[in-house]
Design a protein around this nucleic acid. Structure first.
Lengths: 336, 336
DNA sequence: CTGAAAGCGCTTACAG
DNA sequence: CTGAAAGCGCTTACAG
């Protein structure tokens, strides 16, 4: 079942069928109708590989995700689904590629096999070999997260520094004087993971400005680490009355640690941070936090990439999102 | 940069380059070395579309996921990442397609555009139009979840009936006499979602056999519903001392409801069920539950699909997994 | 062991 | 408004 068969049955040439399908050349109403009838009758769809080969584009985007072994957070996973939906609105398919670990073959296939027209790269590091690889490849790409880049680049990010600053100001307004930032893992910080670094910077700046005593701790991305981390903070700095966190995976452990310590939120201890909507609402009590707008980020990333595909000469653009902080129930006045 | 250029630089014909790459025809050691040098030097990779067109296969699998709008559970999302990893071990790429909602175009592209060699279909219903569509299409596919099918079919599933039975037996052994099954949503049950139906069947059979008083309630896939659902059970059936659940999304609400009711698990109330490892361990206290083995399911699904691709005449095979129940800390003797 | 050529199923100048 | 033909970059019988 191919275009030749459709042409034969409709009594026209293959080019006419092709043009009827693409609309790139006018086709008489009668001919178009006949062609469409045959197509509908046989359920014909052009062969994607043949079209890609002829057109020089695949109508497919690559989405590079962290490997499953490094357990994806809720936000990350929601982001994947949202990218697929956003791409679908442009009639683009999405090819998934794990990277890192021992998945270089998969990443190389994406970059160099001309399987995709462009790439969205999640979870980039300040020094990221994948970014360098993509830059050499001439394949258009958009990153989630950003790196300061001389020539400018295409990205979407959440302004972690600003959000964490706002969280600190909120706590300062409530009278807290000793606060802690529960950051992502020490490995990520060492690897130059932007959100972890920028959160620290924002935290330190805001605590300084407000005259608070601020303390930053790294915490692995898992509940057990959250528990241990909080217990250590309580032991070493009992004067701390509030925490800001960007570590979603640690939340259940944090919750348990608070419970174990007999602390009631927000009466005895306040918590805020940058957390996926869904997780913030599942916390007990619901967290006052900046909701990471995964859907919006996905949509913007796809839109930027499409813009770059349509116009390869476009000057780099980006979007730095600063979602509002949703006031829920996890922050309160400093206990005395 | 194409195969002609490689051939020219290596001083051989295009076919020899192709055979050197595929190994489908012997190539003299000297020639092979020369070709490989040129390839390495130029970083050449065959154009995937051209190869797909010539070979008649795309080396790509389609993974049909539920739409992001219907929020994916943790298990489902982990499954996606695991499928990508399992496919990568076969050097296969994965094309993602949301289905349901208004994503029929995407699904149709997958099915009919010859974009993929085979499909893995998640979250199937007893009467699933997508399954029927795939059956008509002659595209090999494997489902996650199964439907009784006359001719046999290819699938991977977890034996929810057996696992729920085992949970009930466990509770019966601990002396519980009034137990409840917290099922997935009424909509899913109405739509014929297998795990929901089979869990109910297993629950009813086991409670009958052990002479327990069992009660089944449906619960929407979200924390708020879990909370409301549990409160209603407490109000209407205060004699209930244990719950079995397969509803992961409701767990945070369940947790909160238990807390609100002043119940300590497992002293006052026991909980068990079929729950993703990660969530079971995040519960407080950690849940005694059957861990849904998402990674293993993903690997098996990919392996089955690959087997079917390699041998189109193979008789349908399937895998019904019955993971062990991990004893953690959420079940105890019936309170008196 | 190697090459020349046909063919995969499209798109798109070129010509009318 | 339409058609014949070249071309996209591979693979694979066919021939030697």
């Amino acid at each position: 079942m191919n275009i030749r068969e459709i042409a034969r049955r409709a009594g026209v040439s293959r080019s006419t069928v092709s043009y009827a399908l693409s609309g790139k050349r006018p086709v008489s109403a009668a001919t178009a109708r006949r062609i469409n009838e045959v197509i509908a009758e046989l359920g014909y769809k052009p062969n994607a590989s043949a079209r890609a080969l002829a057109e020089g584009r695949t109508r497919t985007l690559g989405l590079v995700i962290p490997p499953a072994s490094r357990r994806l957070t809720d936000v990350q996973l929601g982001f994947v689904a949202s990218v697929v939906e956003a791409a679908a609105t442009h009639d683009l398919d999405v090819l998934l590629s794990p990277s890192g670990g021992d998945h270089d073959r998969s990443f190389e296939r994406i970059v160099t096999g001309r399987r995709v027209d462009g790439v969205i790269l999640m979870e980039i590091l300040l020094e990221d070999p994948r970014v360098e690889r993509l830059e050499r490849s001439a394949l258009p790409f958009v990153t989630i997260g950003h790196i300061e880049h001389p020539g400018g680049s295409w990205w979407v990010d959440v302004d972690y520094a600003a959000l964490v600053r706002r969280c600190v100001h909120h706590l300062a307004d409530l009278g807290h004087q000793h606060v802690v930032l529960i950051n992502r893992s020490a490995e990520l910080v060492a690897a130059g993971y932007g959100p972890a670094l920028r959160s620290t910077a924002g935290f330190q700046e805001a605590t300084r400005r407000r005259g608070l005593c601020g303390h930053v701790v790294c915490c692995a991305d898992e509940p057990a680490a959250g528990l241990a981390c909080f217990e250590e903070v309580r032991a070493r700095r009992p004067e701390v009355t509030a925490a800001v966190t960007i570590n979603e995976a640690a939340l259940p452990g944090l919750q348990r640690a608070l419970h174990n310590a007999g602390l009631t939120v927000p009466r005895d201890f306040s918590i805020t941070g940058v957390i996926a909507n869904r997780l913030a609402e599942d916390f007990h009590p619901p967290l006052t936090a900046a909701d990471v707008p995964a859907e919006e980020m996905a949509r913007l990333a796809v839109d930027l990439l499409v813009e770059r595909l349509v116009n390869p000469e476009a000057t780099p653009r980006h979007a730095l999102l600063e979602p509002v902080i949703s006031l829920r129930s996890s922050t309160g006045a400093r206990p005395r």
